[in-house]
Design a protein around this nucleic acid. Structure first.
Lengths: 197, 197
DNA sequence: TAAAAGTCTTAAACTAGTTCATTTTTTTTC
DNA sequence: GAAAAAAAATGAACTAGTTTAAGACTTTTA
């Protein structure tokens, strides 16, 4: 993907919530860093302090933690047009608990912490953009944290398929199990059951 | 609680993230509505369009949905110095799925949707306040939605006690079960087990 | 293109959590 | 302050999801 395409993608994403002048667009783009990650490579690992907030222009990544037994718990899959990172670590400059690993060759745009702060000084409109972006993410996480707790694994799988039909075909069953919160073995049973219905 | 005390509480809460002039403080206070809810009364019910975002100055409320079988799933307990409401319904003016019920006699300050919009026009600094508020809530919900899925009920109970030591003594075991995502019977067993340890 | 590594499937034995039913304890209400 | 209502405790039978192990299928790597 060339620069122009990835810039159009991120500016369109921002354009959903705020209007920018040509000058502001240029200024914004100048604050971004181009990043490439090959399949299976880490964008970031637990213990590091997150340097960027990421916007995905191409590919797919998984964001996950490891529990005491070393089992992975996937908190999100990020594909084109998604934002990702570890906000807690990014904001408070504390070591992250998350790993971010590419499941396909991927391309991203990164906004560093210094540039994030600068952004609000230079284009205060971005306070609004992030206010709305966070608000919307919040609505969906509140819903997920309730559903995660109250639905059965089978119901969560059916919801995931409905909500992310494009993602479901790009990830392994094992990773999906790590997201749904069950073992790969039980995931396999659920899938064959649901497909039989 | 008198007006002055509740105004100090909310202004201190806001003061954590942004600085306001005296004039701005007055302006902000003038946009708020005083609300009282008696124990067991509803602040809001599913099907209604949420009219306010609420700040609690006294008391305790539970925010919950009912599933198809009529079982309650509690998404948060809100006590003094907390913000609550249904953001999805408030923002998009769509019917809410949530009930909010007082578990103690409570007092709140409400910001209506019209005044919320006005606020950003009159004191743009509030974009920043909400950007930071939402960002912090997001961090804790992301953590909760992962933990909710990957910890056992007993671990979730121990975490809740550690994180909200003051709330745990103000709510019933039954409501806590509705938050943790288990039956009241199993909650009872966990509590007696943990206390025995 | 063969070997190695990882993913998926299946099944049996197990455990965390549910359901239903009953009794005791606490809180609410008049 | 007695009666009613709600919450909490306990136990037995059940179900959703885990664990372990082994074989089949796919993808990656040299």
């Amino acid at each position: 993907m060339n620069y122009k395409e990835s810039h159009t993608l991120i500016l369109d994403n921002i354009g959903r919530f705020i209007d920018l002048t040509e000058l502001e667009k240029q200024k914004y783009i100048s604050l971004l860093t181009e990043i490439e990650v090959k399949k299976k490579a880490f964008l970031m690992q637990a213990g590091e302090i997150t340097r960027y907030e990421y916007f995905i222009t191409k590919g797919c990544l998984k964001v996950y933690t490891l529990d005491e037994e070393g089992a992975p718990h996937i908190s999100m899959f990020a594909v084109e047009d998604y934002w990702t990172g570890d906000m807690a670590s990014f904001m408070d400059k504390e070591p992250s608990r998350y790993f971010i690993k590419a499941t396909e060759d991927s391309e991203l745009l990164g906004l560093s912490r210094a540039n994030y702060d600068l952004l609000f000084q230079e284009i205060p409109k971005f306070e609004r953009f992030y206010r709305i972006l966070y608000q919307r993410s919040l609505v969906s996480y509140i819903r997920r944290s309730n559903h995660g707790i109250s639905l059965t694994a089978e119901e969560r799988y059916i919801e995931f398929k409905k909500k992310y039909p494009k993602i479901v075909n790009r990830i392994t069953q094992k990773d999906l199990a790590g997201y749904i919160g069950i073992t790969p073995e039980f995931m396999s049973k659920i899938i064959s059951k649901v497909n039989r219905m």
